[in-house]
Simulated scan of single mutants.
Amino acid sequence: MTESTALSALTDHASIVDTLHRYAAGLDLGDADLLASSLTEDATVDLGPAMRRIGYDFPPLQPRETVVGALIAAVGPLDSSHSISNVRSTVDGDTATVHAYAQAQHFKPGVGSDPTVTRHALMMNRYTATMVRDGAAWRIKQLDIANAWFDGDPTMLLG
């Protein structure tokens, strides 16, 4: 691998990780524009595998406008914190296959920092994504979310 190729690979990986961080921060901050910046116009986000594991049927969301509207309405008001880790990516031209973990803690609005509140929903999810290059940035075209484990009250995730 040449120095130029190595630098390009590192730059792509950093941008791919940034895409996942924009996605997660958009959810945690209830920021529709930030969340939208991580997605292609025709993006599909499939939370079905994660939600079925805790007893809910949840259809895939598509396109970006629907994804953003549904997720901001559901997660945006919560006191939530999504942490992305273990990001692995394989780039083939302008397409990347990405695997990562996302640990997400959820509390009802306004009570997340109250140490007496114990009702929560903590999820460890596995993300599998297809991303596409959009200029210097990467965007999520397909995101499949599967649950590895869950702790707490699944009704926290309902309005």
Results as ranks from 00 to 15, higher is better:
residue 64 R to A: 15
residue 42 D to I: 02
residue 32 A to H: 11
residue 159 G to L: 01
residue 46 D to L: 07
residue 12 D to C: 03
residue 149 W to Y: 15
residue 132 V to L: 10
residue 159 G to F: 06
residue 99 H to S: 08
residue 60 P to F: 07
residue 129 A to H: 07
residue 123 M to Q: 15
residue 149 W to Q: 06
residue 6 A to N: 10
residue 17 V to W: 03
residue 142 Q to K: 10
residue 14 A to P: 01
residue 35 L to D: 04
residue 5 T to M: 08
residue 113 S to W: 10
residue 100 A to N: 03
residue 96 A to N: 07
residue 136 A to I: 07
residue 22 R to Q: 08
residue 155 T to Y: 03
residue 34 L to F: 03
residue 72 I to W: 02
residue 51 M to R: 13
residue 128 T to V: 14
residue 112 G to Y: 11
residue 26 G to C: 03
residue 149 W to A: 04
residue 52 R to E: 12
residue 85 S to L: 02
residue 16 I to N: 05
residue 102 A to E: 06
residue 122 L to D: 03
residue 51 M to T: 09
residue 149 W to P: 07
residue 142 Q to R: 13
residue 63 P to Y: 04
residue 152 G to E: 03
residue 17 V to D: 03
residue 2 T to G: 14
residue 33 D to G: 06
residue 2 T to P: 05
residue 24 A to C: 13
residue 64 R to S: 12
residue 32 A to D: 05
residue 70 A to I: 01
residue 2 T to Y: 02
residue 97 T to N: 06
residue 98 V to M: 10
residue 49 P to L: 09
residue 15 S to R: 15
residue 7 L to T: 08
residue 35 L to C: 07
residue 42 D to L: 08
residue 44 T to V: 15
residue 118 T to W: 01
residue 27 L to K: 04
residue 120 H to D: 00
residue 52 R to T: 12
residue 84 I to Q: 11
residue 159 G to I: 00
residue 30 G to N: 09
residue 24 A to G: 08
residue 55 G to H: 07
residue 67 V to G: 06
residue 11 T to P: 01
residue 84 I to F: 09
residue 137 A to P: 00
residue 26 G to W: 06
residue 12 D to W: 07
residue 113 S to I: 05
